[in-house]
Nucleic acid binder design. Structure first.
Lengths: 233, 233
DNA sequence: ATAGTATGTGTATATATTACACTAATAATC
DNA sequence: GATTATTAGTGTAATATATACACATACTAT
């Protein structure tokens, strides 16, 4: 790494115009609601993507690392600062941005429910969209989204990150439903409960779900809300 | 992403000096030999890291994406062009390079055996080093190596990438030994063979290992040399 | 011929996964 | 207040998977 770098120590981009790329982050923000996996999209109001939808994102600032920039994006768009956020993949196709060389460090975030999002002045619109309803997106954001969905599926199966998609207190049916939606499977209720409870990662709160014209469900909570590598399914 | 970008369309780095980072790749190149996991390191001959060891890497060229740059690094350092190569993580700490803002997209590669490496004119030395013997490294390369080791361990366990660390034809003892070394476990020979053979991913070649003052081992080969997600252990 | 060394193999036990159907608790309706 | 509709909650038997464990085999070197 050093060798190329020292050959180009003056950091102007005049003669070596593309040696230095613009660095951006794009964040795939997921949530589950109404029995569907949703992703937060913004509608662009700048050429050449006017009217098109894209993932929220932006350039990394001089004093930021990519993690910080992604966290900032998440906060600006959702007001949430403590969500699960993980680096996904870096997309660097030379022609991925029509304006020039922009490399994007993509992240994905998981929110416990459809957070109310304020329309930003910089965008035409901002909305939660069911992932099944997402059509074409600006840039290579379709690829980024696809990569995020694959990652989410695999992480759900072998870690406990489901906690980040659930509210603090939740029912076992809600939890099972999250797995079924995202993994696109049907699970046996008794076997699911047996397995999840055997993990020892959740406990009863003692409380029960209030509303509902049927038997009220026990509310559970995660003992630790931190990521652990465990075969959940 | 678009909003910031369009505000800074002129791609000179004069006024917004660090908005545009230098983009580099560093490659953690692994191989197994002499019953140890080895990593390829280069010794630097430029200040301020003169004499220090580092991961092979370099700046991404204008017409390259990060994958291409990593592949080139691997080829330049080892002469190998068909190894397993996977993006690992992007390291972007603001002060990770003493010369300025350099963001590194790290990769890791797996080679079937200790490939002979030619000393490069740009480096003081280049060597295979057992990972247990690696002390401090230049930049944040210690972190990168650590991240790569963690990734390698987990990928070994739930995919078949072990094929990329083995020669075309190999014995079951060799294969078991790779798992034992990297995962730092002891495995039961009969159970290991039962499980691996049950996967149906390898087959006998019919040939036997020649040399050795003992019973010659059957040689096996992978039916497909491509990555599949399978619980191997 | 013998000694040394790594290869190759099977079975019994324990654990984990799967398949499967009814009762319980509540709200809404009559 | 009895009935209906709806989701919650529970156990067992069968199958599949994982584990623990010891000796005969095929070769080289002496």
């Amino acid at each position: 790494m050093c060798i190329y770098y020292t050959n180009n120590r003056n950091m102007t981009s005049q003669s070596q115009q593309y040696e230095f790329a613009a660095l951006a982050t794009d964040v795939v923000i997921f949530t589950v609601c109404e029995e569907q996996l949703h992703v937060l999209l913004v509608q662009m109001n700048k050429k050449p993507f006017t009217g098109m939808w894209a993932l929220p994102g932006g350039l990394v600032k001089p004093n930021e690392d990519a993690d910080t920039a992604a966290k900032r994006q998440l906060l600006e768009k959702t007001g949430v600062s403590n969500a699960y956020l993980e680096q996904l993949y870096t997309f660097s196709r030379v022609d991925r941005d029509p304006f020039g060389r922009v490399v994007s460090v993509a992240y994905y975030a998981l929110l416990p429910k459809k957070t109310k999002v304020a329309t930003m002045p910089d965008y035409a619109d901002i909305q939660w969209v069911p992932v099944t309803a997402v059509m074409s997106l600006a840039y290579d954001h379709r690829d980024i989204l696809q990569t995020a969905i694959v990652r989410l599926k695999s992480k759900l199966a072998y870690t406990n990150i489901v906690y980040s998609l659930l509210p603090k207190e939740f029912t076992l049916s809600e939890m099972q439903s999250v797995y079924e939606l995202i993994l696109d499977t049907v699970l046996d209720k008794r076997n699911f409960r047996k397995k999840i409870l055997a993990q020892g990662m959740i406990k009863k709160t003692g409380k029960k779900q209030t509303a509902g014209a049927n038997r009220p469900a026990e509310l559970y909570t995660f003992i630790k809300r931190s990521v652990q590598e465990v075969a959940m399914l």
